[in-house]
Nucleic acid binder design. Structure first.
Length: 854
RNA sequence: GGGCGCGUAGCUCAGUCGGUCAGAGCGCCUCCCUUACAAGGAGGAGGUCGGCGGUUCGAUCCCGUCCGCGCCCACCA
C-alpha cells in the first residue's frame, strides 16, 4: 500500500517559493561528477550582463535552455548547468556612473573611506579614483546579481548555483589573462598602431562586432577644389569640416570626367593644400559628384584609400572628438584654422561651412540627406576614426587560412535551428580585420603587460614584459613589472603598465574555459569540455558565439561545444524588438507573479527555437489553465476510492478502452522523447498536451463512473490503474515545462523529486496491444452526444432516449466493450441501435442521438 | 544591394516527402453549476492556405516570378 498524501485544497500559489527552496536545500540540481564524459550534459549558459534588469526575452530564452537541461537530467545525465554573471565592462561602468553620480578619473588617489553621494547629480558627476570606481562597480553588481538570482530561482531554472561564476572574479581574470598570454606567445595577439573606430564620448576603441548603423540626418555640401589654372573641381561631401584633413581626391579609373585630372594636383579650399587626384576602383562614379574627398579619416573607405594609396596622415580630431588646438603643419594657409581649433566635430562643421560660404567655395546651399552612420551599439555619438595603439586578436579577418578553418568549425557545429548556420558563415566571410580587444576603460580585465621605458622615457612596445602564468592574476597598474621595483614605474629606464582593459567579449569568449575549470580543475575539464550545448539569442552569433569559437579553436583546436541553440526574441505586439529606449519592455517579475512560473514557462516553451514571438498576456492564461488542470486532474485520480498507486500496473488494465488509451500514450512518449532529442521542446510539449486534453475531456469522463466502482471492482481497478499510470507518465512528460506543479503533485505519493526521476519509457504503458483508434471512435460518439445536448440547450446530464451507431462492422465491434462506459457518461437510458455498413462504403462512424423528453 | 526567415481563420501558430490537410489554441457566439476542475465544461460560426504563372490526373504543399513583413550584413564621398 502506497501512501497518498492529498492536500485538502491544492493550489498553485506558493509553489515556486516552496519547491525552489527545497530543490536548493536537497541539491536536486547539483552536478555530481560521474565516471565518464558520456554521462555528462554540459551547458554553456549565457552569463547575463548585470547592468540593470532582465526582461521577458531573458525569461523565455533561459527557459528554453532549462527545458533541455531538465529533460537531460531525467534521462540520467549529470547535467553541468552553471550560471555566470557578466559583470565586467562598459555596461556596468555606465550603470555605476548613472546610479551613483560618479565618474572615473584615473589620476585621482584612492580614498579608503569613500562613500558615494547621497543625492547623485547626473549633470555634475563626482570624479573618483580608479580603485574607488571599481569598488562601486563591485558593490552595485552584487545588488543586481542578487535580484537576477531571485528571478531565475522563481522562474525555476535548474542551474547548479554552486557553479556560479563572475566575469570580473579573480578566477575569470586569471583565465582571461592566461588565454591572452598564450595568444601572445603564439603570435595570435599583437599590438598595432592603426586607424581605429573610436567612441568620442566613452573615449574607447570599438570592435567591428560592436558596430551598428543608424540612419542619421546630414547634408551634402558641394565644395570647390581648385586646379592649377584656377578652375574648380567640385566634390560633394557630408563632412565638410574634414576639408582640413584632405589628402587626395579620388575617382574611378574609368571615369571619363576625370581622366585628365589623374596625376595632377588640386588645391583644397580654405587651406590651399595641394592634394593629388588619384584613381581607385572603390570610387563610385554615380555617387555624389563621382569624385570623393579622401580625408584621414572620414570613413572606412578613407582608411582603405589611405592604406592602399600610401597617403599622408592628416588627423585633426582628437580622442575627445574635438579639433586639436595646435594648428596643423601641413596647411598652406593656416589662418582659417584658428576658427576651428578646440571645437567639436559638430560646431567645426558649421564653422567650416561659414568659412566656405564666405570664400565662395561652397558652391551650392547644402541639401539635406539621411544616410547610415556607424555608431558603437551602446554609444550615442557617431564614431570617429583615430589612429591609436591597440591589441588585436587573430580572428580570420586578415588571414584566409584561419578564416577557412573557422568556417569549417561553423559547419562542424550542430545548429538549432539549422538555418542559423548561415549567419555565422556570413559574418565570418564578411570580416575585414582582426578583433580589436583592447578598451580604454577601467572595469575590466587588465592586459597582463608592461613596457620597458628607455632612457628618454619612451615605451618599448615591441617587447612587452609579461608575468609568469603562475603569478596570475595581475594588475599591472598596481603591481610592478617582473624584474622591476615599484619605484621604477613611469621613470626613464623603468617600466610602464599597459593601461587598457580587455573588451568584455574578450573575457566572455572564454566562458567555456571559465566554467569547466580549464587549467584549474583538470578532472572537471575532462568531464565537461567541449560542452554539449551553447544556448543564446540569435543576435549574438557574431559576437559571443563567434568569439568563443575563435578562442577554443586557437587554444584547444576544437569547437567549445557540439551544438548551438538559438532562441528568438520576445517582441512587442507590433513585432518590434523590446528595448528600454522604445519603452515597450515588459517586467518579468510582474508576469511571473500574476500567472505563475509554470504558466510563463509554458508560453516560453511554445516559442520554437529561433522564432521570435510576440508578447501576449492572454497566452499566459492558457499556460495557467494547464497548470491548474494538472493539479485538478491529479487530485481527482489520487482521490478515487481505494486508489492505491501500488496497484497501478499494466497487468491490471484489462478493459479495451483503458488499453487503447495506454497504447496512445505509448506513442506520445515515443514522440515527445524524439522531439526532445532533437531539441524541439515545442513539439514535445505540443504532442504531450494534445494527448493530455483529450485524455481529460474524453477518457477521464468516459471511465469516471467505472472508476468509482459502477461496474464492479475488477473494472474499477482497470480504470484506476489506467488513470494512475497515465498520470504518472504525464507528470514526467510535463515536468520540464511545468516543474513546480508537477513536483507538487508528484510529492503527494512519491518520496524523491520528479526532476530526478526517470524520463518515461514507452513500455511503462504496458505492451503495445491496445487499439489507439478506439479513442477516436469514442470521441466521435461523445462529441455527437454532447452536440445534441448542447444544441438542445440541455444539460449534459440530460438523458438520451436512443443512440444509433452506423459504421463498419469492425468499428462497431470494437465499441461493444465500451457500451457500459458510454451509457454512463452519456446518460443514455434508451437502447443503442447498431447498423453495420460494408467497410468500403464509408470509413466513418455515423452517430444519431435522440434526447429524452425533458 | 547581398543573405536568411516568414506570409495558412480577427490574433498566435501547427501542418502537408503533392491526393479525407484545410487544423489547434486564444478571441467571438450559444449553452451547461455534471461530486477533479466555473481560475471550469460542451457545442458552434470564421479561411478561395499573399498575388500571378508553370509542372501534374490533381498544389496550400514542388518550380518561377511579383508583392509584403522581419532579422542579419553591406552601404557615411
Amino acid at each position: 500500500m502506497s501512501v497518498v498524501n492529498l492536500p485538502e485544497h491544492p493550489a498553485l500559489e506558493g509553489l515556486e517559493a516552496k519547491w525552489s527552496a527545497r530543490w536548493r536545500d536537497q541539491g536536486v540540481h547539483r552536478f555530481r561528477r560521474p565516471a565518464g564524459r558520456d554521462q555528462v550534459f554540459a551547458i554553456d549558459t549565457p552569463p547575463p550582463t548585470v547592468s540593470g534588469s532582465l526582461h521577458v526575452g531573458h525569461v523565455f530564452s533561459y527557459t528554453h535552455t532549462d527545458l533541455v537541461a531538465r529533460y537531460q537530467r531525467m534521462r540520467g545525465k549529470a547535467v553541468f548547468y552553471p550560471m555566470g554573471w557578466d559583470d565586467n565592462g562598459l555596461p556596468t561602468e555606465r550603470r555605476v556612473q548613472a546610479y551613483y553620480g560618479v565618474r572615473c578619473d584615473p589620476s585621482l588617489p584612492f580614498e579608503p573611506d569613500f562613500q558615494p553621494p547621497d543625492q547623485p547629480d547626473p549633470k555634475r558627476p563626482l570624479a573618483i579614483s580608479r580603485a574607488n570606481f571599481i569598488a562601486l562597480c563591485q558593490q552595485l553588481t552584487a545588488i543586481d546579481e542578487r535580484a537576477f538570482e531571485d528571478l531565475f530561482t522563481q522562474l525555476g531554472l535548474s542551474v547548479d548555483w554552486d557553479l556560479l561564476y563572475q566575469t570580473i572574479s579573480p578566477e575569470a581574470i586569471t583565465v582571461a589573462q592566461r588565454a591572452f598570454l598564450r595568444n601572445l606567445a603564439r603570435g595570435e595577439a599583437y599590438l598595432d598602431f592603426a586607424p581605429t573606430l573610436w567612441d568620442v564620448t566613452l573615449q574607447t576603441a570599438v570592435a567591428q562586432a560592436e558596430l551598428e548603423d543608424r540612419q542619421t540626418a546630414g547634408a551634402f555640401h558641394r565644395i570647390a577644389f581648385h586646379r592649377p589654372d584656377g578652375s574648380p573641381v567640385l566634390v560633394e561631401t557630408t563632412r565638410p569640416e574634414l576639408v582640413v584633413s584632405a589628402c587626395a581626391l579620388i575617382a574611378h579609373p574609368d571615369d571619363p570626367r576625370y581622366q585628365d585630372l589623374f596625376g595632377a594636383t588640386v588645391a583644397s579650399p580654405l587651406f590651399k593644400v595641394e592634394v593629388p587626384v588619384l584613381a581607385h576602383r572603390a570610387a563610385e562614379m554615380d555617387k555624389g559628384a563621382g569624385i570623393a574627398m579622401c580625408c584621414t579619416f572620414g570613413d572606412l573607405t578613407d582608411v582603405i584609400w589611405w592604406r592602399e594609396l600610401a597617403l599622408p596622415t592628416r588627423t585633426v580630431i582628437d580622442r575627445s572628438g574635438r579639433f586639436q588646438t595646435e594648428t596643423p603643419d601641413w596647411l598652406v594657409d593656416p589662418a582659417p584654422y584658428q576658427a576651428l581649433a578646440g571645437k567639436t566635430v559638430f560646431s567645426a562643421r558649421q564653422t567650416t561651412v561659414e568659412l566656405l560660404r564666405a570664400t565662395g567655395e561652397l558652391v551650392a546651399e547644402p541639401w539635406a540627406v539621411s544616410r547610415p552612420v556607424k555608431f558603437y551599439e551602446k554609444g550615442d555619438k557617431p564614431l570617429e576614426i583615430v589612429s591609436t595603439r591597440q591589441w588585436y586578436l587573430s580572428n580570420g579577418g586578415r588571414d584566409p587560412d584561419l578564416k577557412a578553418q573557422l568556417l569549417a568549425r561553423g559547419r562542424e557545429l550542430k545548429w538549432v535551428p539549422a538555418h542559423m548556420a548561415h549567419r555565422f558563415e556570413d559574418w565570418v566571410n564578411g570580416l575585414n580585420g582582426d578583433w580589436l580587444v583592447s578598451r580604454q576603460r577601467f572595469f575590466g580585465v587588465p592586459f597582463p603587460v608592461w613596457y620597458r621605458l628607455d632612457a628618454a622615457g619612451q615605451p618599448d612596445f615591441d617587447h612587452p614584459v609579461v608575468p609568469a602564468e603562475a603569478d596570475l592574476p595581475v594588475d599591472p597598474m598596481a603591481q610592478a613589472a617582473p624584474g622591476f621595483e615599484p619605484g621604477q614605474r613611469d621613470r626613464p629606464g623603468g617600466f610602464t603598465a599597459d593601461p587598457d582593459v580587455m573588451d568584455t567579449w574578450a573575457t566572455s569568449s572564454l566562458t567555456p574555459h571559465l566554467a569547466t575549470g580549464w587549467e584549474r580543475d583538470p578532472e572537471l575539464f575532462e568531464l565537461t569540455f567541449p560542452m554539449d550545448l551553447a544556448p543564446q539569442a540569435h543576435d549574438i552569433i557574431r559576437t559571443w558565439l563567434f568569439s568563443r569559437v575563435v578562442r577554443s579553436h586557437l587554444e584547444n583546436g576544437c569547437l567549445p561545444w557540439r551544438r548551438a541553440a538559438l532562441s528568438g526574441f520576445v517582441v512587442d505586439p507590433d513585432r518590434k524588438k523590446m528595448s528600454k529606449s522604445k519603452g515597450n519592455v515588459v517586467v518579468p517579475t510582474d508576469v511571473l507573479e500574476r500567472f505563475g512560473s509554470d504558466a510563463v514557462r509554458w508560453r516560453a516553451a511554445m516559442a520554437r527555437p529561433g522564432a521570435d514571438s510576440p508578447f501576449d498576456q492572454a497566452q499566459m492564461k492558457v499556460g495557467r489553465r494547464l497548470a491548474t488542470k494538472i493539479l485538478n486532474l491529479s487530485r481527482f485520480i489520487l482521490g478515487l476510492p481505494d486508489n492505491d498507486p501500488a496497484q497501478w500496473s499494466p497487468t491490471v488494465v484489462d478493459q479495451a478502452v483503458d488499453r487503447a488509451m495506454l497504447a496512445r500514450l505509448r506513442q506520445v512518449v515515443t514522440q515527445a522523447t524524439a522531439a526532445y532529442e532533437a531539441f524541439e521542446y515545442s513539439d514535445a510539449l505540443e504532442t504531450t498536451e494534445k494527448f493530455f486534453w483529450t485524455f481529460c475531456d474524453d477518457y477521464v469522463e468516459l471511465v469516471k463512473e467505472r472508476a468509482y466502482g459502477a461496474q464492479g471492482d475488477r473494472a474499477a481497478a482497470s480504470a484506476r490503474a489506467g488513470l494512475g499510470l497515465a498520470l504518472d507518465i504525464l507528470l514526467r512528460l510535463f515536468a520540464p515545462t511545468c516543474p513546480f506543479v508537477t513536483e507538487e503533485v508528484w510529492s503527494w505519493w512519491h518520496d524523491g523529486s520528479i526532476h530526478l526521476s526517470a524520463w518515461p519509457q514507452p513500455d511503462e504503458a504496458g505492451p503495445p496491444d491496445g487499439d489507439p483508434g478506439l479513442l477516436d471512435q469514442l470521441s466521435t460518439v461523445l462529441t455527437a452526444v454532447r452536440g445534441a445536448k448542447s444544441q438542445a440547450k440541455a444539460s449534459m446530464r440530460a438523458a438520451v432516449a436512443q443512440l444509433e451507431l452506423a459504421g463498419p462492422e469492425a468499428v462497431l465491434e470494437a465499441l461493444q466493450p465500451v457500451v457500459a462506459d458510454l451509457k454512463a457518461v452519456g446518460h443514455i437510458v434508451g437502447p443503442i441501435r447498431w447498423t453495420a455498413r460494408p467497410p468500403d462504403t464509408t470509413t466513418g462512424l455515423m452517430v444519431a442521438v435522440v434526447l429524452a423528453e425533458a
